[in-house]
């Protein structure tokens, strides 16, 4: 039983969440002795692809075709479909990131496989795969009705393998025509230098307790010290203090970092839904009755303007030691 991993990439490098997808795929093959194949569409770097052997990748297949530089889920799905036709795989694994979310369901529909979005663990002995539903308030154990599965894997679903092997490299021609590419990217805007919220290991999030956008400097400083991404509550992005992309919660972005700081956020149920799968939650709030304390591991009842600078100094000293 061979497994395919879609090697999502940007600027010619495979993205970090894919590493875990590779280790997940490797563990899927362990009972059957199959191989893990990876497919990268568009620009790639040979040394980068070889290094993925460390996480469990056996063969990296690259499709050198500049037309894949614009992400087009239809063309990408066709290419993945052609690959699976030529190299049969029972499972296809994706990272549950932006492209994974757009692409994996299409691939499942095309290949007529069961799709499990946001898989949180390897299949259990009964074959079911667990995933989060109801915004992290519950789990569903999904049973496949098809012969194989497409799995989009969340962070922390499995541990990274660390093997001293290189993946072998192979070229693949997807054979698409110009008419298969329909989407033209005209402009890309990325925030400069900061840590990407959806990929962040640590997140520093703040809410209305900060009283105004001019007070975010201390939040950014704290995030800088922690090498964390910044986030915010819904009211803060609604009034325009912070960009929409920072809105964490049920109708914004869901995050699953190892460490989540909530500063001046009361903890409305809709906000908690976006963060409750974080491994450790620290809450700083003036109101000891703030509902967020019930969802927190650690809490400080205090004024953010007093606590955050002290916390930042203490963390700086910790990391310098």
């Amino acid at each position: 039983m061979n497994v395919l991993v879609y090697l999502d990439s940007a600027d010619g490098r495979v993205k970090k969440p894919v590493y875990e997808a590779i280790s997940y795929a490797k563990r899927l093959t362990q009972s059957s002795g199959g191989q893990v194949h990876g497919l990268v569409l568009g620009a790639s770097d040979e040394a980068d692809l070889k290094s993925l052997g460390k996480y469990g990748l056996d063969v990296a297949h690259h499709v050198d075709d500049a037309r894949f530089s614009s992400f087009d889920s239809r063309a990408y799905t066709m290419a993945i479909g052609k690959f699976v036709e030529a190299n049969p795989c029972t499972h296809v694994v994706f990272a549950f990131n932006h492209r994974g979310k757009a692409l994996a369901p299409r691939v499942a529909a095309r290949l007529d496989l069961t799709y499990v979005p946001g898989a949180m663990a390897l299949p259990a002995e009964d074959g079911t795969v667990v995933r989060g539903v109801n915004s992290g308030k519950a789990f569903a154990h999904v049973k496949a009705n098809k012969s194989g599965m497409v799995l989009a894997v969340t962070g922390n679903a499995t541990e990274l393998l660390n093997e001293e092997v290189e993946a072998s490299i192979s070229a693949f021609d997807a054979g698409l025509s110009d008419g298969d590419f329909a989407i033209k990217v005209v402009k890309v805007e990325k925030m400069g230098g900061g840590i990407i919220l959806t990929e962040a290991d640590r997140v520093v999030s703040a809410g209305r307790g900060l009283k105004g956008p001019e007070n975010w400097a201390m939040i950014e400083e704290l995030a800088g010290t922690l090498k964390a991404a910044t986030a915010c509550s819904r009211p803060v992005s609604d009034v325009g203090w912070r960009p929409h992309r920072e809105h964490v919660g049920q109708t914004g972005t869901t995050v699953r970092p190892n460490l989540y700081f909530a500063i001046g956020i009361s903890g409305a149920i809709q906000h908690l839904a976006g963060v409750n799968q974080s491994r450790t939650i620290v809450v700083i709030n003036t109101d000891p009755e703030a509902p967020f304390f019930k969802a927190a591991d650690y809490g400080i009842v205090g004024d953010a303007f007093d606590v955050v600078p002290k916390l930042n100094a203490a963390l700086k000293a910790h990391f310098a030691a």
Binding site: D112, A138, K146, F293, D297, G299
Partner: peptide, 25 residues
């Protein structure tokens, strides 16, 4: 249908928050 839910489950109860004094960062 392509999949079924064998069962739903609720997450384990979160333990109590540990409160730390603001003067004892």
């Amino acid at each position: 249908v392509s999949s079924e839910v064998a069962k739903y489950a609720l997450p384990p109860e979160k333990g109590d928050v540990k409160l730390i004094d603001a003067d004892n960062i």
